[in-house]
Design a protein around this nucleic acid. Structure first.
Lengths: 333, 333
DNA sequence: TCTATTGGTTGGAGCGCTCTAATGCTGTAG
DNA sequence: CTACAGCATTAGAGCGCTCCAACCAATAGA
């Protein structure tokens, strides 16, 4: 179970270890004769370079660390895809690791990532305190995705939640809705901007905002709707804080004998794969997740190459995806 | 951006590098006096050990590699949780990396993982060819999750898909169904055992199996149902190959004016978070995913500690989760 | 008093690689 | 025939750490 080293390959190919090193790194200054001999020997021995030894000796790393706060959320999967694509294009590998939305575990996950001395680290919607992030940023380039931060030495990539909610309200208003409630995401990431965007858009249209306290889960969405129904303050349209919440809301509406969208329209946020299911077919706000990842990786690699030291803050434009949960109010009933 | 080394800490604490090493590894044979001095110096310098150098020097690793074939699938998130929990208990870290269900990318992902010389590697539902796995297994302990294999030197953890489908059929039969179709997963992982389990259970009950070709997606599930309806061979109950397929099936049934479960009962497989949504509330077969992860990690660590060299093959028992998509046939209509 | 013993501490080799500077070699010009 | 490029190749140091054997008190036993 002990793997062959560069020395073994060198011996077998009848050359020096340094030459093998050159071949492995694809250097042009090696004769074809030797190159083929080395590659042949490596192949025969099943040799592959030892990334750690390489990184130790070269004092550089070709690894980007990615800390995913919650692996259960498919949102991050697409962000990771974006990071992965860019990283691979530029010869970097990624290692992922997860924090399970617990500050303690995230802390440990981050430390573990840092102990590999990666070239850069992307934190996807982390819950660790800002000062921990800032401290890490002194040692390695850091980019924050789906979490804004005023930390001066990190880059950030976010969607413009205010704008997204604006799009949703514009859509509902254009359908003729005037009574539109927002199921609020509470303390959740990005809940603030979304709430602000909702209020701003309602005000802009001369309508009265109605913010209902809720959370990022389907259970919470259902509970909020039941609250509205029992207090007899159900509007004709709902802007949920995310897709899960929206699905919970729809389910509670249907349980109450109301129909979506003819009686009540519902808009989600995030355009998760759930929303796209025909059975659900939820009108929602799409975030360019893959683009998040790509930009995050680019930001990191720019710093790695020393092209930039000033922090960059990307604010991406979300877009409206109209499906079957929105219609004019008091529809075909 | 250059981080302090053990040498720096030693210098500052007025001791040797070796002593710092002992302190960092928590050795008992260090006087309290020196220990506190070292820890203080390390703290002041913001020192943390270099995992790669450590692993290189000690020729051991405290890292388990995990290759997730598809990050978009929440199934794996729970498996990873299980692995992570066990690994952490035993002082190991995990690094994840993804193959996107493409053999080429998985190959590269595996290589990248191996280049870190991890203590062991877990492959979650990989699509790489068996010989690549077997070759990797010569270098490092490997465990396969949700993919069976006859490769002699790897451990495997699977659910008993035959048994799971048996549970589903037993449930439907006990409700009074006699015409039950199976929407088949085609080439998908575990589709074979599920199909076999379905056929065996039907036969056992003296019923005629009806296998309908389909795939692991909601679109495919819907298509299969439309086919059944147009050929006028719709049964009273459906056992889908997985939850996505089941949701597609339900949606097509509803589109056709049929009601679930009063007209047709539907059972899924996997108990994804989707199935648990109240809006969906799908009767399905649950796999002990977290347990998959725990057992996979245990298997790896046993090999790491040299406690076992014989391969182990875990076959876990799935269980039936009854929700609201199954009822007696010809119900309350 | 001298030798063991013990517990704390240290120097140095070496893990598998990269990188710099030096080496040998061929070919061309003076 | 010497000089000097220019190129392919190599020796050797060193990356940050662990581990072993050696070391050095200080105490115990004879």
């Amino acid at each position: 179970m002990t793997r062959p080293t560069m020395e073994d390959v060198a011996l077998r190919a009848g050359v020096s270890r340094a030459l093998v090193s050159l071949v492995m790194r694809g250097s042009p200054k090696v004769s074809d004769l030797r190159r083929t001999a080395v590659l042949k020997a490596a192949e025969e021995l099943g040799y592959s370079p030892h990334a750690m030894a390489r990184s130790l000796a070269s004092r550089t790393s070709t690894v980007l660390g990615v800390m995913v706060s919650d692996l259960h959320n498919a949102f991050f999967a697409e962000v990771v895809d974006g990071i992965d694509a860019v990283a691979r294009e530029q010869g970097f590998d990624i290692i992922i690791n997860t924090g399970g939305r617990s500050p303690t575990r995230e802390r440990r996950a981050l430390d573990s990532l840092l102990s590999f001395r990666p070239a850069g680290v992307a934190l996807l919607s982390p819950v660790v305190p800002a000062n921990a992030i800032s401290k890490a940023a002194e040692q390695v380039p850091i980019v924050l995705v789906a979490r804004s931060s005023r930390v001066s030495n990190v880059d950030t990539v976010n969607d413009d939640g205010e704008q997204g909610c604006g799009l949703a309200i514009d859509h509902l208003v254009s359908l003729g809705h005037t009574r539109i409630a927002h199921l609020d995401g509470g303390e959740g990431t990005q809940a603030g901007p979304r709430r602000r965007g909702y209020i701003a858009a309602m005000t802009r249209h001369g309508l009265t905002p109605q913010v209902v306290s809720s959370e990022y889960t389907d259970v919470a969405g259902a509970r909020a709707i039941r609250g509205l129904i029992s207090s007899d303050s159900l509007p004709t349209a709902i802007l949920a804080c995310n897709d899960f919440n929206a699905v919970g809301a729809i389910s509670a509406l249907e349980d109450a004998g109301l129909r979506v969208p003819s009686d009540v329209s519902v808009v989600g946020y995030d355009n998760t794969s759930l929303a796209a299911l025909r059975h659900v077919s939820l009108t929602t706000i799409d975030q360019p997740r893959n683009e998040f990842g790509r930009l995050a990786a680019e930001a990191l690699l720019q710093r790695v190459r020393g092209e930039r030291t000033e922090p960059v803050r990307h604010l991406l434009h979300p877009s409206l995806v109209v499906r079957n949960t929105t219609a004019p109010p008091g529809g075909d009933r």
